[in-house]
Amino acid sequence: MNTEATVMKETPLQRFWSEFCESRIAVASLVVLLIIILLAALAPWITPQNPYDLAQVDVLDGKLPPGSDAYAGYTMWLGSDGAGRDLYSAILYGIRISLTVGLAAGFIALIIGTVIGLTAAYAGGRVDTFIMRAVDIQLSFPAVLIALVLVAILGRGIDKIIIALVAAQWAYYARTVRATAMVESAKEYVEAARCLALSTTRIVIRHVLPNCLAPLIVIGTVQTASAIALESTLSFLGVGLRQTEPSLGVLISNGFEYMMSGRYWISFFPGIALLLTIVSINLVGDQLRDVLNPRLKR
């Protein structure tokens, strides 16, 4: 009786971790992602300049190539942009904003999408049809278009961008949660819970939802990366965040006009930072999908 139990003493979390580590690319991506997050979190202490503090930004330092010395004395290893911001500082602060916007939008969309998806799965009938048609309509428009229209109506600012991103992304979560919840609630353990006269709310929250988490985590990772990309796109198009508090997209957009005049660094380095962030999140998400997908279990 006990022999079998002792064989499987590995906890689910340990097994998850060892399976995750099977892909070296995924581990490398996770390390890169953690470094990016760490740099962004520590930005005020490891950067020579606060790019949001106009007293520290000197327009005379503008458009300096990488390696030049700033008027204030420190070296601008990645050069400076048109307004005289040290690009290294601006990138770290920009990653902060991009990550905040992406994570906040991803998290809020996840909550809203989950609630809507569970409602659709459990209410069924007309409510389900209504919600799913709304999801279909939402998904048939490009996300950029929806976000663009909303930002145009709401105006600029981090909060407005987050609202626009949530509006563009909730449908992915809703659809996934609904499908998973329907599969899960047809299983016998849910029937058993109903037979034990447990309330529907309790069954949904304690029994169905925890079993829907795996696909949610995967969608959440990929959609967070796509929210960051979307925010950068909006900023690049000039409808996103303000010039005074630049995200990566604003930095790229600012440098774009100098691209053809040989000052590549203003767009190039923020672009690299954005690329690394999005690619590493996506690679981690891909590996999560492989590990958490029960159909690929070895």
Binding site: E188, Y189, E191, A192, H207, N211
Partner: peptide
């Protein structure tokens, strides 16, 4: 297998 909630 299916009649027990795997997360509990």
């Amino acid at each position: 297998f299916a009649s027990l909630n795997p997360r509990l």
